[in-house]
Design a binder for these strands. Sequence first.
RNA 1: GCCGGGAUGGUGGAAUAGGUAGACACGCAAGACUUAAAAUCUUGUGGGAGCAAUCCCGUGCGGGUUCGAUUCCCGCUCCUGGUACCA
Length: 924
Amino acid sequence: MVEYNFREIEQKWQAFWKENETFKAEVDPNRPKFYSLDMFPYPSGAGLHVGHPLGYIASDIVSRFKLLKGFNVLHPMGYDSFGLPAEQYAIQTGQHPAITTEQNITRYTEQLKNIGFAFDWDREVRTSDPAYYKWTQWIFMQLFNSYYDLNADKALSIDALISHFEKEGNTSVKAVCDDDTPTFTASDWDTFSEREKQEMLLKYRLTFLAETTVNWCAALGTVLSNDEVKDGFSERGGHPVERKMMMQWSMRITAYADRLLQGLEKVDWSEPIKEMQRNWIGKSIGTEMVFQVKNSDKSIKVFTTRVDTIYGVTYLALAPESELAASLITEDQRAIAESYIEVAKNRSERERMSDVKTISGAFTGSYAINPFNGEEIQIWVADYVLAGYGTGAVMAVPAHDERDYNFAKHFGLEIRQVIDGSMENGSFPGKGGLIINSGFITGLYMKEAMEKCIEFLEIKGIGKGKIQFRMRDAIFTRQRYWGEPLPVYFKDGLPYLIEEKDLPLVLPEVDKYLPTEDGEPPLGRAKDWTYKTADGEFPLEMSTMPGWAGSSWYFFRYMDPNNDSVFADKAKTDYWGAVDLYIGGSEHATGHLLYSRFWTKFLYDLGVVSIDEPFQKMINQGMIQGRSNFVYRIKGTNTFISHGIRDQYETSAIHVDVNIVNNDQLNLDKFKAWRPDLADAEFILENGKYVCGSEVEKMSKSKYNVVNPDDIIERYGADTLRLYEMFLGPLEQFKPWNTNGIDGVFKFLRKLWNLYHNTTGEFAVSNEPASKEEIKALHKAIKKLEDDMANFSFNTSVSSFMICVNELTALKSNKREILEPLAILVSPYAPHIAEELWALLGHTTSITTSVFPEFKEEYLVESNFEYPVMINGKLRAKLNLSLSLAVPEIEKAALADANVQKWLEGEAPKKVIIVPGKIVNLVV
RNA sequence: GCCGGGAUGGUGGAAUAGGUAGACACGCAAGACUUAAAAUCUUGUGGGAGCAAUCCCGUGCGGGUUCGAUUCCCGCUCCUGGUACCA
């Protein structure tokens, strides 16, 4: 008797795949390629939980399906192995992060291999491997050596810029650069010192060193990016974060803002993710214009998207951080305004965000002149104006902007309506409305008025149309140990790249993973952290790269993971091209996914890759949440009462390990053994069982709701785990993990196994031709599977397998003609059992080398259809009729039916609707 | 506040060019097998009324379009993800 022995089968086939290099992918120009990628994990100390593999299983199914469809599939896995947790652990224990990272990777790999993924493990990459980060550093160097040319609309070599400066200075250069870049001529450039030249070039380089306001987290001793900060606290660890000015490396991602926006049109991503990126990039088309300050040579530049409301401006507002604001304060306002600025500046970002409702500001005492009508308007300081956006100054139009309205109301400033409409609900944007009370633009509509205004500003030389982005340049350094060192040394305080031959610049050893006593990053502890050149020995940069550096290009490295002379061979990147299917969480929408697109576009500009969008199609899998179980202790006792009857007593709910609960039923023996204090626990049962309560929460150790895939595999096998994770519901939906239905999936696999075996458990497959019913059952499944694959609807595929197997079991089918294709069908989902059945069927090669069965419509064609007959939209009868019947015949048959006649009560129907092959509806 | 996603039996979910709501699975109930339990198998299972045939109600709520609405339109409620004074 041979039972379905998943343990034996799974081990056997995992070993087979490894030995035969079944999933080895190599460039093959004769086959179409398919690149299937998962977001690679950070190998944490906790290991994988059942939520992690969800996306991997889905991409594995697609990968195996594509193999069967004749594609050359690249399906790699690796590790994003630099990161904060390993470093924090190192700080606590003194253990080198490389060691714990290695251990964690070993654990992850073992867990992943247990699930039977079709990964080409020879292509594994690790971002913390010097052989890998050599190329992360190399890309950084290329960015340092590039600037963004607006005429060419691409990154060009900094050498080209230098030769341009030598010939013509920078006046004719159209390039992305710092706002404070002065203009100079060729002869100016010639007279610049080396230092001045380098400082000037830094204003153009795509990665550059600059004093920036950063999110400083004192507890972590590092800078965090905006997306690592949540409500003023660090995302990891929840430590407070404050704003601080620091010298930092930045990436000029803003140079690519427009291309990042346009590129979204070309990729097949979910609309919400695209929308999030659009909002993050935040393109606004508007006008920049200058207001002269009254009785002063100073002026205020503002950015507005609504220059058509220029006659409604009743005050200007400046950000508290603005130096200009401080200089505009007059004597009589000094006390109030300066103290306001002091308070506003010191309010942390967090306070300012959480306290949006409070309106605050102060009048500077100065006035500006509206160039359109010569009016004098007050200049205020207000903390609703952000220093970092636009020009840090706002022309306030209270009548047509809600924030300006609230501010004006609060301080009793004038509210002047310039667009026709009702003001009864306060301000209104009035986009496209008729303009009133507005000098020469009165009577116009928005678009035309804006054009006229810009024309006016351009003639006077005090303004122009401008496009503004919300996105900022990305800060690229962290004051951390466990990251890529920057290949940069300092000479006379100016940054220079080390030579390419000296890559990788390997992370040095340090005695402790903490900042130095004088506040330098941990690399400040390293001995000889210097770079030797012909001119002497110079200090190296002590900060390291952020977590997103290594993950911004790893998809290229998979194509050529061991190349030591180039980050990836062009012939290989050209063959594999963009990722055809990328599966991962939507939480990376504005981080990883944006940075990866940025670096890809940059590498494209360099000409080293041929694609400018890395991820053609993306699916965002939903998170698997935890499902906690509770027991109810009667207060003051060690007696636990079942969930359904707990109301009779005063109880307290206690988290219980979900691994000792099955279908919400507590295993009493395991519970007693769980903790010493529970050894003598007593129970009040309902219907002889102890039923636990449950709640959906985040999966976490402290809630005892973490489920390890290894445990599921131990009990049911990897094939059951794979099928069940898919069966749980739509891939993209958030759902709690709950093993309540897993038995059904396991039973299905056994039923599948039994189809190939007789009642005594011997393998028994007949070579007789299959019946019509059997073929039909098979082809229904083929069709459903193909459709589901196109929609990434894996849960319904599992259902259709079940239906197919149920039907075949009922037909007692054991025909090779059916069971061979069925094994292939199931193989992407449950590869181990499929391989075993395939081998039993007499094949000597892996099932992955077979061909997906072809769907034939003819097997599903029916001659008859059971028509639902409805009276006034309600189902009243069913009629089995030939599909060849024409409408009048169907009508005749329907009217002749006894049940129908009863409902018609002898009257003729008012209306008859007949959709052949669908429905009959009679209206009376 | 703004921008997404969602709400269907006791549970997970299925069904949208508008056409038999609840596929598949879990759970539950009854039965078979068993000394017994587990496992397995069979049958039933949206709610209500009825011996039954059958009837009524039913896809978050209120309207609408339609012969017919889970599906389309309008207005709400709740849950959930993102974002946050972006001028």
